[in-house]
Computed example of a mutant assay.
Amino acid sequence: MLSDKQLRETEEIKAKAQISHSQPDDLIDFYHLKSRKGMSQLELEDQVQDDLKRATGEFLNRIIQLTGFSDPVYAEAYVTVHQYDIVLDVTVINRTKETLQNLCLELATMGDLKLVERPQNYTLAPQSSKQIKANIKTSNVLERTVIVLNDIHIDIMDYISPAACSDAAFRTMWAEFEWENKVAVNTTITDEKEFLDHIIKSTNMKCLTAPSALEGECGFLAANLYAKSVFGEDALLNISVEKPADGKLNGYIRIRSKTQGIALSLGDKITLKQKGGS
Rank of each mutant, 00 (worst) to 15 (best):
Leu2Pro: 06
Lys5Glu: 13
Glu9Ser: 11
Glu9Lys: 07
Glu11Trp: 04
Glu12Ser: 09
Lys16His: 15
Pro24Phe: 03
Asp26Ser: 10
Leu27Tyr: 11
Lys34Trp: 04
Gln47Asp: 14
Asp51Ser: 14
Asp51Glu: 12
Lys53Ile: 13
Lys53Met: 10
Arg54Asn: 09
Gly57Ile: 01
Asn61Pro: 07
Asn61Ala: 08
Ile63Lys: 15
Gln65Cys: 08
Gln65Tyr: 12
Leu66Lys: 01
Thr67Tyr: 02
Ser70Ala: 12
Ala75Trp: 03
Ala75Glu: 02
Glu76Pro: 04
Glu76Gln: 11
Gln83Ile: 06
Tyr84Val: 05
Ile86His: 05
Thr99Ile: 09
Thr99Glu: 15
Cys104His: 01
Cys104Ile: 11
Leu105Phe: 08
Glu106Ser: 10
Leu107Arg: 07
Thr109Cys: 15
Leu115His: 06
Pro119Glu: 05
Gln120Lys: 15
Asn121Asp: 06
Lys130Asn: 08
Ala134His: 10
Lys137Trp: 08
Val141Cys: 11
Glu143Ile: 04
Ile154Gln: 06
Asp155Arg: 03
Ile156Leu: 11
Tyr159Gly: 03
Cys165Phe: 03
Asp167Glu: 09
Arg171Lys: 15
Thr172Gly: 01
Ala175Phe: 14
Glu178Asp: 10
Glu178Cys: 01
Val183Arg: 00
Val185Lys: 02
Thr187Tyr: 00
Thr188Met: 13
Ile189Leu: 15
Ile189Met: 09
Leu196Ser: 00
Asp197Asn: 14
Ile199Tyr: 00
Ile200Tyr: 04
Lys201Leu: 13
Ser202Met: 07
Ser202Tyr: 04
Lys206Leu: 15
Leu208Asn: 07
Ser212Asn: 13
Ser212Lys: 07
Ser212Ile: 11
Gly216Ser: 00
Leu225Pro: 01
Ser229Asp: 08
Phe231Leu: 10
Glu233Asp: 13
Leu236Ser: 05
Asn238Asp: 09
Ile239Thr: 03
Ser240Gly: 01
Lys243Ala: 08
Lys243Ile: 04
Pro244Ala: 03
Ile253Val: 14
Ile253Tyr: 00
Arg254Asn: 05
Ile255Gly: 01
Ile255Thr: 05
Lys258Phe: 15
Leu264Pro: 00
Ile270Thr: 02
Ile270Met: 07
Gln274Pro: 04
Gly277Ser: 09
